[in-house]
C-alpha cells in the first residue's frame, strides 16, 4: 500500500502545493524579507532594498515597544480564556445535540447562525448589548441583578477581555460545534453498544469511548480556536477599537503602520513575523501533543 500511495503522492499534492506557494508561501517569504528593511509600503526608505537593509533593527524596535509587549500579553490571556470557553461550549453543544432526536437541525442551525453574520452590523449590535443591555437593563442597580463587573465592559482593560470572550464564544461556538459533530458522527455506533453491554455508564462511556475517538476533532478545534484567537482583529476593532489598552496583537500590527508617518511597514512586518513564530511554536506543540492522543485504526 505504502508504495502505491507514494507513486501517486506528488501528483495528488501538486495542485495544493502550487496554490500554497503562489498565494501564501512566496508572499510570506517576501514579507519576511521586508521585515529586515525600512520598508514603507510603497518604497524602501533609502532607495533600494539593499540600501534600506537594517538587519534585526525592526525586531529590536518591536521588542522595545511597550505597546507591542502589552498586546502580546493581552492576546495570550485572551487566547487562553477563549480557547477554553469556546471548546467547552462547542463540545457541550455537540454532545447535547448528539443525544437528542427531534429538532436537531433547528438547534444546529440556530447555534451556527451567529457565524453567518457579516462584521458590519455586529459591531453595532454588540456595542449596544454591552453598553445598553448589560449596563443599563440587565445588570444595573435596578436591573435583573446588580453586577458591576458586567457593566461598562468596553471601558476597562480586564472587563473588555471578557466582553471579547463573551462575543467570540457566541460567534464561534457554533462553528466549532460543527467540527465536533462531524467527529462524533464518525465514531462507530457499535462501539457504544459494546461499551453499554459491558455496563459502562454515560460518564465512563464519554471518557473511555467518545473522548479518545474524538481526539482528531479536539486537535482541530483546539488549533483553530488558538489560531483564530491569536489572529482576532475585527471583533477587537468593533468592540473597543483598542481603547483602554485593549489592543490585541493583530490590531497592534495594523496600528504600528498607522501610528507612524511615513508608515513603518518594516517594523509591522517584523511584529507579524515574531507573532507568527510564537504562535507557530505553541500551536505546533499543541497539535503534536493532541495528535499523539489520537487513536488510529
Amino acid at each position: 500500500m505504502e508504495k502505491y500511495y507514494r507513486k501517486w503522492f506528488w501528483l495528488l499534492i501538486m495542485p495544493s502545493m502550487l496554490l500554497f506557494f503562489f498565494v501564501i508561501a512566496i508572499p510570506f517569504i517576501v514579507g519576511t524579507l521586508y521585515s529586515f528593511t525600512s520598508w514603507r509600503g510603497t518604497y524602501f526608505a533609502g532607495g533600494s532594498f539593499l540600501n534600506s537593509f537594517v538587519g534585526f533593527g525592526n525586531y529590536i524596535k518591536a521588542f522595545s515597544d511597550e505597546r507591542f509587549i502589552h498586546s502580546l500579553v493581552y492576546t495570550s490571556l485572551y487566547t487562553l480564556a477563549a480557547v477554553v470557553a469556546i471548546n467547552l461550549v462547542a463540545l457541550a453543544f455537540s454532545l447535547m445535540l448528539n443525544n437528542i432526536k427531534k429538532g436537531v437541525g433547528i438547534y444546529r442551525t440556530i447555534f451556527f447562525l451567529p457565524n453567518m453574520l457579516g462584521g458590519l452590523a455586529m459591531g453595532f449590535v454588540w456595542q449596544f448589548i454591552f453598553q445598553v443591555v448589560y449596563t443599563e437593563i440587565l445588570f444595573s442597580p435596578d436591573g435583573l441583578f446588580h453586577a458591576e463587573f458586567l457593566r461598562y465592559m468596553t471601558q476597562n482593560t480586564t472587563k473588555a477581555l471578557f466582553a471579547l470572550v463573551i462575543m467570540t464564544v457566541w460567534q464561534s461556538a457554533g462553528y466549532m460545534m460543527l467540527i465536533y459533530i462531524s467527529g462524533l458522527n464518525s465514531i462507530p455506533g457499535d462501539l457504544y453498544e459494546a461499551a453499554q453491554i459491558d455496563g459502562a455508564g454515560p460518564v465512563r462511556r464519554f471518557f473511555k469511548v467518545t473522548l479518545p475517538l474524538l481526539m482528531p476533532s479536539v486537535t482541530i478545534v483546539l488549533f483553530l480556536t488558538l489560531a483564530n484567537s491569536f489572529k482576532l482583529l475585527d471583533q477587537n476593532v468593533a468592540l473597543t477599537n483598542g481603547n483602554f489598552n485593549t489592543r490585541l496583537i493583530a490590531l497592534q500590527i495594523l496600528r504600528t503602520v498607522q501610528d507612524n508617518t511615513p508608515p513603518d511597514y518594516g517594523t509591522a512586518q517584523a511584529q507579524a513575523v515574531i507573532f507568527f513564530v510564537i504562535v507557530a511554536v505553541i500551536s505546533l506543540f499543541q497539535v503534536s501533543v493532541t495528535r499523539r492522543k489520537e487513536v488510529e485504526y
Partner: peptide, 11 residues
C-alpha cells in the same frame, strides 16, 4: 501628514 510618505517615495 500624508505628504512625507509620498514625497520620500518620489511619488
Amino acid at each position: 501628514k500624508e505628504l512625507p510618505e509620498w514625497k520620500e517615495g518620489g511619488r
